[in-house]
């Protein structure tokens, strides 16, 4: 009896310690990254061109590539999610789509990068371009978007759909007027999640969007190479010629984490809270 109680106490202590260790690790990471970065971050660094030691063009490319990749992946990902949640009956096609989504989600990002390299650089002969980088990055977003869309649509009660269909609307009308409006917050949360991952992705972009920036800033031409912030952090580390590489790396790391935090806190969190309140009042 006593040994049982003892093992219970020991296990409880170990589990609490693990929990605190995990949170402690995160706090340490964030404090270190932001602490090192704030020594470097300034308006010139964030928005200035490379000639002033800034990462402005890289920051611009990061957002530009993100937006383009969402333009590719959101329609297809949300469409496939709608198919799985609203139309799919158990069939070979449904199983295949589900399996494909899961497989695509585990494909290592470097493999997606090489696929993009074959298609955009070698088959289409475009060279390293923002367009190719965004398309390859879209492949990373796609499976996550399918999953979050399906999950978001499944939270809409079945009675809402039945009510709409009973009033004589078609299935598309039901989806557009009833299902999508009441799951929109879930979709937004999903898209911010996807964006956070896409912003930090580098392996896909090194051989599709390249490691150089345009001479013009900001350059909206999608057919030029466009190094992002994450790729820049990778690149300066291995490049002894970059002036004060350590400072640029520390600043880029902090800026990346700040952007991701911004996406999570400024867009993701309010949507989550609002959604919970919406549920609570029902």
């Amino acid at each position: 009896m006593n040994s049982n109680r003892l093992s219970n106490t020991v296990a409880t202590v170990i589990l609490w310690a693990s929990g605190f260790f995990i949170v402690g690790l995160l706090v340490f990471f964030l404090a270190y990254i932001l602490g090192q970065g704030f020594k470097v971050l300034s308006l010139d660094f964030v928005f200035g061109p490379a000639s002033q030691g800034g990462v402005g063009p890289q920051l611009f490319n990061t957002f530009y590539i993100l937006v383009l990749s969402l333009l590719y992946s959101v329609p297809i990902g949300v469409g496939a999610g709608i198919y799985l949640a609203e139309y799919a009956k158990p069939s070979r096609l449904t199983n295949l789509v589900r399996l494909s989504t899961e497989c695509l989600a585990t494909v290592p990002s470097i493999v997606l990068g090489l696929f993009g390299l074959i298609i955009f650089v070698n088959v289409l002969g475009l060279g390293f371009t923002i367009l190719g980088g965004a398309a390859a990055l879209a492949l990373l977003n796609l499976p996550v978007l399918v999953r979050v869309t399906e999950e978001a649509l499944r939270t809409v009660p079945h009675a809402h759909r039945e009510g709409s269909l009973a009033l004589g609307s078609t299935q598309w009308q039901t989806i557009r007027r009833v299902v999508l409006p009441s799951s929109i917050l879930g979709l937004i949360t999903g898209i911010t999640l996807v964006s956070g991952r896409a912003i930090g992705e580098a392996a896909i972009l090194v051989f599709t969007a390249g490691t150089s920036v345009s001479r013009h800033y900001p350059d909206f031409n999608p057919l030029v190479a466009g190094e992002t912030l994450a790729v820049h952090l990778w690149y300066v580390r291995g490049e002894p010629l970059v002036a004060n590489a350590d400072a640029v790396a520390a600043g880029s790391a902090a800026l990346l984490v700040l952007v991701v935090l911004f996406f999570n806190l400024a867009i993701g969190l309010p949507a989550r809270i609002y959604q919970r309140r919406l549920r609570g009042s029902n």
Binding site: R197, I199, G200, A202, R237, A253, V257
Partner: peptide, 12 residues
């Protein structure tokens, strides 16, 4: 947030 930290930042 652990997921949100980019892989290059982990490396750094």
């Amino acid at each position: 947030l652990f997921v949100g930290i980019p892989s290059v930042v982990y490396g750094w």
